[in-house]
Amino acid sequence: MDNKYTLTINGKKQEVTAPEDMPLLWVIRDLLSMKGTKFGCGQALCGACTVHLDDKAVRSCSMPISAVGNKKITTIEGLSKEGDHPLQKAWVEHVVPQCGYCQSGQIMQAAALLKENRTPSGSEIEAAMAGNLCRCGTYNRIKEAILTASKS
């Protein structure tokens, strides 16, 4: 059955009508037409779809819309106004992306980590980022970029 939901997404209230089991990922991509959040596996195994619910990283592919409640949603489009979050700047500085497809999810995961732990160690970064796959193999630059951002 379709229900009406009011979401707060990137600081804006949005009304959507969706079945209660529709994953937040498809609400964001298909119903709200925001394409920065990516689909990779649909099973919480790759991290491409990572968004924030009240500052915590979640896999939007495995989060039904009915479970969002009134938590604030942040997607890559809302991480910073001008694309200048310290992580985004560090990502460009280290030229992290290759194909770039996983990077929205990587950055959202890293941003949640930095909210929780301003100065993570190398192994803390590895543990926090273990759920985000990158087939192009940009892991080392991701790590360096997070370290750079954590110093800014």
């Binding site: 991509r29 298909d30 037409s33 925001m34 394409k35 920065g36 959040t37 990516k38 689909f39 997607t75 890559i76 489009e77 991480l79 910073s80 694309g83 985004q88 990502w91 460009v92 030229v95 992290v96 992306p97 770039g100 497809y101 990077q103 929205s104 950055i107």
Partner: peptide, 27 residues
């Protein structure tokens, strides 16, 4: 030399295969 798309790829603006929306498109 820095890749042209680095910033778009880091801000969710880069357009991949599934990201094109056409009017009346079905899935």
């Amino acid at each position: 030399v820095m890749i042209y798309d680095a910033k778009d790829m880091s801000t969710g603006k880069a357009i991949y295969g599934a990201d094109v929306d056409l009017p009346n498109m079905q899935i």
